[in-house]
């Protein structure tokens, strides 16, 4: 075990995969000379040169589309979007091109491409730099949607994403970049599509994504002291969705709370609740509940932002209510 920052785990994954396979290259705004807006590619430009670590113009549709063309012709581009909000600027290339070309070509084409983009609120970045795009992206077929929680996941899942022959959208949480985690170097690759039970428990299943996994773990400790035993499932990817792990856990605990930072409406919580309902309905002791970003644009002021975004406190409250309903 060693300690590493989330952003450095990403850099290590990029570095190791570039070292391993000369078809891997990185492009995006500010990724080269300064090593990325969030410092996730420091040193790679110096090591691999200008053609492999490419500072692009501010042309999201253009360079995401170039990534598609590179992937179609045999490279494995990793394309960084500075904020996941900007994915919408490149939306056609992501949604209509990257994720559909294999299907539209009847399986002739493969698009081994990764789009990395930071999600999450908490930095007073307001409505256009704080959103979490996993729900909107997951709606469209043809791309995997990955949400690493810790540095271990960031590294192991990114390495798997780069080796995957399908397009993968890889959402990093911007509030985690400088947080430190223990990482086990014995784990090289984490398979995409397998959820991870981060903590076993008996009374309630909390399926969490990204940063909310750590918040759920903290909440679980407090709830333990109150006599509530939580099972924390780190979803790791929305597409593919590991239904089996969720269903097995809910059958054991009888309760399900889903915590994800995308907007609530048509969100990840809604999807998982509906997706597992037929399988878990007769095992449930309480209605399925969810925690998400409410359906308002994210506000700037900390006085407005922090109270509304998903938090440890909200997980605590909801979990308590599900396990021990008052009245």
């Amino acid at each position: 075990m060693r300690e590493i920052m989330y952003r450095d785990a990403i850099r290590e994954a990029l570095d190791e995969e570039m070292e391993r396979d000369e078809n891997v290259l990185l492009l995006g705004e500010d990724v080269a000379f300064i090593g990325g807006n969030f410092k996730t590619s420091v040193g790679l430009y110096e090591k691999y040169g200008d053609l492999r670590v490419k500072d692009t113009p501010i042309s999201e549709a253009g360079f995401v589309g170039m990534g598609v063309g590179m992937a179609l012709t045999g490279l494995r581009p990793v394309v960084e979007l500075m904020f996941s909000d900007f994915l919408l600027v490149s939306a056609d290339q992501v949604i209509n091109q990257m994720s559909k070309i294999r299907y539209m070509s009847g399986g002739q084409a493969t698009v081994p491409m990764v789009i990395r983009a930071p999600i999450g609120a908490g930095r007073s970045s307001a409505a256009q730099h704080s959103q979490s795009m996993q729900a909107i992206v997951s709606q469209f077929p043809g791309m995997k949607v990955v949400l690493p929680s810790t540095a271990q996941e960031a590294k192991g899942l990114l390495k798997s994403a780069i080796r995957d022959d399908n397009p993968v959208v890889f959402f990093e949480h911007k509030m985690e970049y400088t947080n430190k985690f223990d990482i086990d170097d014995g784990i090289e690759l984490i398979p995409i599509g397998k959820a991870d039970i981060k903590r076993a428990g008996e009374d309630i299943t909390i399926v969490a994504t990204s940063s909310l996994v750590m918040k759920a773990l903290k909440a679980a400790e407090k709830l333990e002291a109150e006599g509530i035993s939580c099972e924390i499932v780190d979803l790791r990817s929305v597409v593919p969705l590991d239904r089996e792990t969720i269903i097995a856990s809910v059958k054991k605990t009888g309760r399900l709370l889903i915590a994800d930072e995308a907007y609530e409406r048509c969100g990840i919580g809604a999807e998982i609740a509906a997706n597992v309902m037929e399988d878990v309905f007769y095992w449930l002791d309480a209605p399925i509940a969810r925690i998400a970003t409410p359906n308002v644009p994210l506000p700037f002021s900390p006085a407005l932002e922090f109270p509304i975004i998903p938090s440890e406190d909200k997980i605590l409250e909801k979990a308590r209510a599900l396990v021990a309903p008052t009245a």
């Binding site: 990534g67 179609l72 012709t73 581009p77 002739q108």
Partner: peptide, 30 residues
């Protein structure tokens, strides 16, 4: 699409294929 002929696809989105063809050029340069 006819990948075996280097045809990266006709495209239903006007302008959608321009960056894709450009990416193929980048791959060739690379």
């Amino acid at each position: 699409m006819a990948m075996d002929k280097g045809i990266l696809g006709a495209n239903g989105i006007v302008g959608g294929e321009i960056p894709i063809a450009t990416g193929a050029a980048y791959a060739a340069l690379y």
